[in-house]
Design a protein around this nucleic acid. Structure first.
Length: 445
RNA sequence: UCCUCGGUAGCUCAAUCGGUAGAGCAGGUGGCUGUUAACCACCGUGUUGGGGGUUCAAGUCCCUCCCGAGGAGCCA
């Protein structure tokens, strides 16, 4: 007899197997118990019949409460009534830990998350348990596959994984959005991007990617923000903005395709409209110049309530949502005015009012999932930009060195994993795409 | 930081003009051989977020603090 997982159950039809897991839900009648049994890889229905198992086993099944842990042995039966095509006809049940209920004992109140409706505040307080629920399970399995696809994409193309530091000595774009930590009586900061370090990697290895947690102390309180999130940032030597956008769209299309091929059951649990993802596998994505995007917004006039934009303004999220809504696949906006963008972005050789920068907006109002640019490679220009932005020059000596010794045009971008997963899953809030979200006003559990 | 909405039973919510707190679910008991958020019957549950005020009377009105949700700005 084998100990097996539900995800492999089809290999054991008509065989006797042992499953180890937990009770997801239960329905009963006089002679039958229907146990919804989960083992982490899936959910299967276990049929416990009084006639087959005898009184003793039947009583154990009867007493099982939600999320109690137990081990079940039985025959795998094909059954068209099952959602996964199979069920288990139990021959024996062994309780591992029974969750007790006693109305008078505050320590024995049963499993808090019942199969009924709950508010998100309550569920977030119980995030450590909420993870067991079917939807959360589906989302985090998709997250896993997104991360795997990210790694496969770059690894298959000869990129080197280049880990950048989490503790950094100085802000790369001003200190206001950084978490400060004490570093042996000196100030240090949690990284908000590995990009500057990845640039050193790109010159050393040709093409690299860094992939790690990122911290932003912005007091953002929206469904698109986490204070701690995961970002993957490729950086490539000898490419310009054009190749950067091509890399970005191939990258996104690859991940979407991988998810569609490997995670349909999870997308079904989430009731995701897959047709909206399919279009994102078809290249190229539209490219809209900043000026044309501005024009689109002007032409939309006051059909939508938003702030009036002047040339040089960055887009607010209502503007981004509108532009993304005009296309059925992700859309690039490129060449933002230099004045709105970071110091390291290369000016457009054809018109230096514009930067060689781009954002990739996800469809359906999911907002910016990628931001990238070609970087300044001229030493003197970069130094001037650092000074103009009032940044501490000595913190950037090493960064300037990269422009002193064999400088070449180079470019890269960053993709926020959780925003990406939010879009793939078609869910309303980013907080469900990471096991334990860190947000303004939330650091528990 | 600003704007809006909310906090009532373990959970989700209701409570008319200010008039003495009530449903569903979860839990328990019983019933049912195939249930899919199973169903049917019966049973218990309260510092109405904290503090202060107005009033004969406050879940309801006023002040204040705390907590939560959504949005803006900023960003991935």
């Amino acid at each position: 007899m084998s100990v097996v997982y539900i995800e492999n159950i089809a290999d054991y039809e008509e065989k006797e197997v042992t499953l180890k897991g937990w009770l997801y839900n239960k329905r009963s009648s006089k002679k039958l118990h229907f146990l919804q049994f989960r083992d982490g890889t899936g959910i299967i229905q276990v049929i416990v019949s009084r006639d087959d198992t005898g009184e003793e086993m039947f009583a154990i099944a009867e007493s099982l409460t939600q999320e109690s842990s137990f081990i079940v042995t039985g025959i795998v039966k094909k059954d068209s009534r099952s959602k996964i095509g199979f069920e288990i006809h139990a021959s024996s049940i062994e309780s591992v830990q029974m969750i007790e209920y006693d109305a008078d004992d505050p320590q024995k109140q049963g499993y808090p998350i019942t199969p009924k409706e709950h508010g998100t505040a309550f569920l977030m307080e119980n995030r450590h348990l909420w993870l067991r629920s079917r939807q959360q399970w589906a989302i985090l399995r998709i997250r896993h596959s997104v991360i795997r696809a990210i790694r496969d994409f770059f690894d298959n193309r000869g990129f080197i994984l280049f880990d950048t530091p989490i503790l950094t000595p100085a802000a790369c774009e001003g200190t206001s959005t950084l978490f400060e930590v004490d570093y042996y009586d000196k100030k240090a900061y949690l990284t908000q991007s590995g990009q500057l370090y990845a640039e050193a990697g790109a010159i050393a290895f040709g093409k690299v990617y860094c992939f790690g947690p990122t911290f932003r102390a912005e007091k953002s309180k929206t469904r698109r923000h986490l204070t701690e999130f995961w970002m993957v940032e490729p950086e490539v030597a000898y490419i310009t903005l054009k190749e950067d956008m091509e890399l970005a769209e191939q990258f996104v299309a690859y991940i979407v395709k991988y998810i569609l091929e490997t995670r349909t059951p999870e997308l079904e649990i989430l009731e995701r409209d897959i047709s909206k993802l399919q279009s994102a596998t078809e290249l190229p994505y539209p490219r809209v110049h900043y000026n044309d995007a501005l024009k689109m917004i002007e032409e939309a006039g006051d059909k939508i309530e938003w702030d009036k934009l002047n040339w040089g303004d960055d887009f607010g999220s209502p503007h981004e949502t509108y532009i993304a809504g005009q296309f059925d696949k992700p859309v690039f906006i490129h060449r933002f005015p230099v004045i709105t963008k970071s110091f390291y972005m290369q000016p457009d050789p054809e018109d230096d009012k514009y930067s060689m920068s781009m954002d990739l907006l996800a469809p359906e109002g999911y907002g910016e999932i990628i931001g990238g640019s070609q970087r300044v490679h001229d030493h003197d220009l970069l130094m001037k930009r650092i000074k103009d932005h009032n940044l501490p020059l000595d913190s950037f000596q090493w960064y300037l060195d990269l422009r002193k010794y064999g400088s070449v045009p180079h470019a890269g971008f960053g993709l926020g994993v959780e925003r990406f997963v939010t879009w793939i899953c078609g869910i309303p809030h980013i907080r469900q795409t990471i096991p334990f979200p860190r947000m303004l006003d939330r650091i528990y559990p």
